[in-house]
Amino acid sequence: MKKVLIVDDSLAVARQLMKIISAGGEFEPVGHAKNGSEAIKMNLELHPDIICMDMNMPGMDGLTALRSLMALDHKVKVVMITSLGGVGDKFTEALKLGAQNVISKPFEPENVLRVLRALQPA
């Protein structure tokens, strides 16, 4: 089972993602961080294989946290979550910073699982 850390200020999104991820049978949600700084802390404590992280959060936002996570830990696979799908520059910035992919909201469960399954181990 691959361990997944969910990072989103929204309880509703975290709940949605946990359901989708758990249903896949191959992934185990191991925690929920509500902003970027919590994500950095929980990454050190929980050592997840995958982090699913929202781009737009109060406090430390997703792109800032992504930059720090990539500097601290090259092994973790980060998938960004966004409702800003069509905003190409943010999408490109996330990929350039090291995100493996970007999942759009509203979620399509099949799409979420396909993206997670496609992640290659470091």
Binding site: S83, G85, G86, V87, G88, F91, T92, L95, N101, V102, I103, S104, K105, P106, N111, V115
Partner: peptide, 11 residues
């Protein structure tokens, strides 16, 4: 969701 072509292809 609304997205651009590149994101669609990567997703």
């Amino acid at each position: 969701a609304v997205k651009f072509f590149g994101q669609f292809l990567v997703e």
